[in-house]
Nucleic acid binder design. Structure first.
Lengths: 381, 381
DNA sequence: AAAAGTTGCTCAAATACTTGAACAAGCGGC
DNA sequence: GCCGCTTGTTCAAGTATTTGAGCAACTTTT
């Protein structure tokens, strides 16, 4: 067990007062310093420093034992702030990603896992109200402030949500120049690429989706895109890739719908799609979120999924499997995306890789076939 | 706009090389120091320090302007690491909460929002694989390591996931003694309370749920609890509160089921509940997660919700509203929980509140009536 | 017995900044 | 010409730790 007597993994147990009142009221001894350890072990400050940093060969066995023992007893722990000042490295990476759905939560998970294995720590800042996809327009200033707060803490690198990539482009320049690596997730650079970027392989994924629907026999296909604001590059690419794939594979044209710029008319759009003549037999939703609207509209209109309309989503968000019927969707690999984003930062920081030109990593996806897609109804035409 | 010429909110634009290759390859000038600002403004280091910290009355208007201007041009930003060393306050709060479902994501949102307004930053560490509820047993050592990593960064306070509260009890003692405030979410202290604690008001919520079911006429009521391991105090309390409320209100006994300690037999338990004789007409699920199993089992058994069985959940997780039928559930107030947890830390840190004895804050809930509950079927008995 | 090497440890400077105290230069008023 | 005010300076110590250089003391070799 962790709390064996006499010392602890955290800090030393003081000759502890048994009453609670006392405990809270006592004026806390602040964290022990290296000086305290050195004194307790009767060695110089620098000897203690070296021994505790692992440079033990240079010292006598007995001295090492004394220092280690003293540190353990006092519950000393190294102060990474000081390390940060001295080395210019805080072992900390700033992350600005609002985890408003399970995709982004998983991306964060990947980042955490990867950074942890390198003994780095992500520091996450959120924008917007964290309840829905942030409205970039109104949150731009807040985003800038948040990045500032990260830089004040001297983060070694930065991982960012796509929306902010566009407007902050000029700022990234400066960061890169200052050797603060920046990785952007799900944002493709159109012109010169300044920072590393990692994204879902939209072309390949859209191709797979198109293949699936066409193989089932669908010919009247709709695409339900998100708000395609300038900073939602992924939506544009996903929709465009899908249109291109359907065209390439079957020479068919997809009828495309979009959310309004506020993302507030999901149900209306879904209804429009399903009441169009001729009615699409399959709807590709650029995200599982849009699929929810289609399910809702279908229910209202008395259309059965998948008998009357097939619906296919994208992302495989946590609710996709429990929808009714379970949603067929293109699963992204958010954890891998996060992991590789973090790895990119780490590589830039201390690899030989540090000076290579910016890359774009494309991560594939996996089609999860559930029960929302079937052959088109016979009486369609 | 943010990027007006000549200076920037981040760091100064250097006389920037236009080619990308150059940009990446150039040896980055590191962040400007106060010394640089002082030199640029032709004042002493300490004058610059004072002016930038707001002590401007002692200096001439012109000098202040020069210093501020120089700082802006060079893109100087204060180094919170240094501040942290000097003041012992890093303006940083460690958070150990794995956001494996939307409840915890919202708690995190609340924490972020509150801390941000005080110019604090949460530093979040995760445990487990972040995909499902962490298994505390196997993640205990990892949890301890994570807290260590936070303390190495000298966080000013700690907000913790309940599971870890129990095993780390002894360690908290030390933290409190060292004046590092600790807040535990959703964990009730049975014996002496050592840290602040914030939780959902289980009694009141369970009472409301019981009332709702009884008012609909249910008499044969089941309770589907989670794994009730020692460190899942909330589950025990929620279930017990519900049993007590049903007893108090109607003198009825609830038949209770639990997940196994690995949480792996959800579907089996749900099936057991629904095949019991006499069959319960209503199932209270300690969490929306369990409700999903009941839905699944009901579908397999050909039972309709709510015609044959009423199901009521707890938490109002993001998927509750899109379940089929939409789940009636007791909505918790995760954002408020997070906000108040953070506030508790801040109060301990610099309020007069610093020395008061540990409190427990209980946050209410709101019954969200959707479509998974109705009157019991007539032919029940 | 002197030279050389090893072991074990210490000194002092460096990291980036804050802050209190003392002090100096320039100015106007008396 | 002196007083006192404004404006700014320098000095020094403090924050917790790292690290290159170097110094004793002791052992081993010659």
């Amino acid at each position: 067990m962790a709390h064996d007597g006499g010392c602890s993994l955290f800090w030393a147990l003081l000759p502890s007062p048994s009453s609670l009142g006392q405990l809270v009221a006592m004026s806390g001894t602040s964290a022990p310093r290296l000086k305290d350890v050195a004194e307790a072990a009767k060695v110089s400050l620098s000897a203690a420093s070296r021994i505790l940093r692992g440079e033990q060969e240079r010292f006598g066995e007995e001295t090492c034992r004394r220092v280690l023992e003293a540190a353990r007893k006092l519950g000393w722990r190294r102060n990474l702030l000081v390390n940060g000042i001295q080395t210019g490295r805080t072992k900390t990476v700033g992350v600005m990603i609002p985890p408003f759905d399970s995709f982004w939560v998983d991306v964060l998970a990947g980042i955490h896992l990867c950074l942890e294995s390198a003994d780095y720590l992500p520091i996450t800042v959120w924008v917007g109200d964290c309840q829905e996809m942030p409205r970039f327009e109104q949150d731009e200033q807040q985003g800038l402030r948040q990045i500032s707060r990260l830089l004040d803490r001297r983060v070694d690198g930065l991982i960012l949500w796509p929306s902010f990539a566009v407007a902050y482009y000029e700022h990234f320049r400066e960061l890169i120049e200052r050797r603060v690596p920046v990785v952007v997730i799900d944002h493709e650079y159109s012109a010169e690429q300044i920072a590393d970027s990692i994204e879902t392989d939209e072309q390949r994924c859209a191709h797979t989706v198109a293949e699936h629907l066409l193989a089932l026999g669908h010919r009247e296909i709709a695409c339900f895109s998100s708000r395609e604001t300038a900073w939602q590059a992924w939506a544009v690419r996903r929709r465009a890739s899908f249109e291109a794939a359907v065209d390439e594979l079957a020479g068919l044209e997809v009828s495309t719908w979009r959310l309004n710029p506020w993302g507030s008319n999901g149900l209306e759009v879904a209804t429009d799609i399903l009441t169009r003549q001729p009615r699409p037999t399959a709807v590709f939703c650029v995200t599982d979120h849009e699929a929810v609207y289609v399910y809702e509209a279908a229910e209202t209109l008395g259309l059965r999924i998948p008998e009357d309309v097939s619906v296919i989503g994208f992302a495989d968000l946590d609710f996709a499997g429990t929808m009714h019927p379970p949603l067929t969707t293109m699963r992204q690999r958010p954890k891998e995306i996060g992991r590789r984003a973090a790895q990119l930062i780490l590589d830039r920081l201390d690899g030989d890789y540090a000076d290579s030109p910016p890359t774009t990593i494309r991560v594939g996806g996996d089609l999860v076939v559930r029960q929302s897609c079937s052959h088109p109804p016979c009486e369609t035409p």
